[in-house]
Design a protein around this nucleic acid. Structure first.
Lengths: 241, 241
DNA sequence: GAAAAGAGAGAGCACTGCTCTTGACGATCT
DNA sequence: AGATCGTCAAGAGCAGTGCTCTCTCTTTTC
């Protein structure tokens, strides 16, 4: 009664939403490759060509689903982060890790759409990047908070950050203000480690080897936390053996 | 004159090979989704139905390409490892990392087929897992060698390995005999970190943020080496700041 | 009320994976 | 040497796809 002014606009928004809903259900069932405009139209009792009034191509529908996916994941991550006390930086990081993994396990095909192989001739329009950084923004905020609180004590014994990295570090720092270069570098390693793990688990690379991925995942993410300099329970306070 | 006995078998092997070659070229051009049996047949001057004499379905052709891909990557990794002195464990690990990344950059679509989202209703037949472990076998051998040589000195200050991990650790240890549980756990984190990085880079997650991925990659993998306990050049011998 | 814009229906194009049948060639056995 | 049987390419065909175009009807706008 408020959003769309005219009746036409209201029903258009309604139908657009219905299309994406059905498409998302199809995506969850058959995966991205099984998403068929004709099937969506069939389920809606429409003729296939009518769908093109709402999405000019199949890729545009996929783009909409991708944006929705990034937002859903981003929201899950934001909620997990917000549920922890602000000064519990390690807990927030672990909560983010588990939120990503849990969401991925609950929506495997959507996760594959976001972080799996890109579709054939897909171009990743600018609309997506905006939604894609929601989770990394949370991640950056955690590290920024930890740094500002003086809680970041990256362990020694690790290689020095190479000089040419400074430019990239400055760009990454935009989402984690104040964090020094060496932590920025490790932050990239930890972040890719998180998604690398989830992808391995989801895409079957752990099959019949890692049977209890949850336990190993928690520990691996805790290791990444330690690498970042976040406080964790030590195993041995001295170096090596 | 040697391989296939009869002429028929020889020409059959020849044609099978030609099909996979053309398919691989198509894969490199258009990606997995663009692989078309009819297009392959067209390029061979055959009629489409004839292809089915050699591959009963499109998925079977894909399976063949997947196995080839795992073997190609495995071979690249093996060569990179073999080019280093056996006792240079850190160098071998770094060589493996760069071999994986270089191969992935050179064959993006094949990499996506191996480590990207699995195809719709694909089942991953047993033939593939056999070829899939070639690279991890190299990885395990490096860690095993390093452990046996007493070169593995995992840094302290990291969380203790959880008890329930023992079962999975034993399974993973089959490819890295002798390596203790805590290093096995970190080995999983480092391995997923490697492929997570390559996937992020290849699938466009770094776009317009990390512009010089090579430098950052080398450093991240060196950090993983340090996490594993492999000897690296320290940045600062004391903890924190 | 007339003009313009939006919407659905239908036919059609070029393409896909896959199946089935038909006719021909080649290897093998008698 | 001749008959037989398995293998192969070809062609037609089915069901499905994304997408375009035209035609008609309704709604919004002026």
């Amino acid at each position: 009664m408020n959003a769309g002014r005219t009746a036409r606009e209201r029903v258009r928004a309604e139908l657009t939403r219905e299309i994406t809903d059905i498409a998302r259900r199809q995506l969850a069932t058959d995966g991205a490759a099984g998403l068929s405009l004709r099937a969506v139209a069939r389920e809606m009792g429409m003729v296939s060509s009518a769908i093109y009034r709402y999405f000019p191509s199949r890729d545009d529908l996929l783009t909409a689903l991708i944006i929705d996916g990034y937002n859903a994941l981003g929201e899950a991550v934001e909620n997990a982060d917000a549920a922890r006390p602000r000064e519990d930086h390690t807990g927030r990081w672990m909560a983010v890790c588990h939120a990503v993994r849990d969401w991925a396990l609950a929506h495997p095909h959507e996760y594959a759409l976001l972080y799996g192989s890109p579709v054939p001739g897909y171009k990743a329009p600018m609309d997506t990047v905006q939604a894609a950084v929601r989770d990394t923004a949370v991640y950056g905020r955690i590290l920024s908070d930890a740094h500002r609180a003086g809680a970041l004590r990256p362990p020694g014994g690790f290689p020095p950050v190479p000089g040419p990295f400074a430019g990239d570090a400055a760009r990454v720092r935009e989402v984690m203000p104040g964090v020094p270069d060496d932590v920025v570098a490790r932050a990239l390693a930890a972040w890719t480690g998180l998604f690398g793990w989830v992808s391995f688990e989801l895409f079957g690379q752990f099959n019949s080897v890692v049977l209890d991925p949850g336990t190993a995942f928690d520990h691996a993410m805790r290791c990444h936390a330690a690498l970042l300099g976040l406080p964790v329970a030590d195993s041995s306070p001295v170096h090596g053996k």
